[in-house]
């Protein structure tokens, strides 16, 4: 084999290891027990699929959120992780948490934002319940948003509207478009 062949083989090897290192070096921390990877046929754009696993984000040793899903797919570049039948837990600094379920979710491994889709339901540990057909978690601002007709129920207060932005404890919310609050009267 001539010199040129050796060089191109070395380059290819370098590329593959570099790509793998690039995907695994950042949070979120992927669990050690990475299940067997189902490799699709080499010639198609390959999708890495994780089945029945969790993705956890930690910061300074504290869990920020964790996502579980029936199936997880990672796109070729490792930038987007799509989750089916997703269950998430978002931990609040003050100790409470918010449990979220959705039909689908897409995690951006760069920004750690999560786009949610389909029967979204978020329940805070204080009992606030938020539902929406589409939603999003934004890491930067630590906020949830929902569109497509939302409801938020907290005690004897029910809030509905077209679009909502809420903090991660669902305590401070902004509703835009046909915003309505019904409160009191529960005694």
């Amino acid at each position: 084999m001539n010199k040129m062949a050796y060089v191109s083989l070395a380059c290819a090897l370098l590329l593959v290891t570099g790509g793998l290192y690039y995907f695994f070096r950042e949070e979120p921390v992927l669990p050690d027990t990475t299940p067997a990877v189902e490799q699709t046929t080499p010639q198609a754009a390959s999708n890495l699929t994780f089945a029945g696993s969790a993705i956890i984000e930690e910061k300074n040793g504290q869990k920020v959120w964790e996502l579980n899903a029936e199936s997880i797919e990672v796109d070729a570049g490792g930038k987007l992780v799509s989750l089916k039948k997703l269950k998430g837990i978002f931990y609040q600094e003050k100790g409470g948490k918010v449990d979220i379920i959705a039909q689908e979710g897409i995690l951006d491994t760069k920004t750690h934002d999560i786009t949610l889709q389909g029967d979204i339901k978020a329940t805070s540990s204080e009992g606030a319940v938020f539902t929406a057909p589409q939603g999003r978690y934004e890491e930067q601002t630590k906020t949830f948003s929902g569109t497509g007709g939302i409801t938020l129920t907290r005690g004897d207060t029910i809030i509905t509207g077209d679009k909502i932005d809420a903090d991660t404890s669902l305590e401070i919310v902004k509703v835009q478009g046909n915003a309505k609050v019904v409160t009191g009267g529960s005694k």
Partner: peptide, 25 residues
């Protein structure tokens, strides 16, 4: 106060702070 009947508040935009119980519409 005893809330005899519920209050309904409708607007284009509502900001609600449930900790304070304050609605800005």
């Amino acid at each position: 106060p005893e809330a005899k009947t519920p209050v309904e508040l409708v607007a284009d935009t509502i900001d609600y702070d449930s900790k304070q119980g304050v609605i800005n519409a």
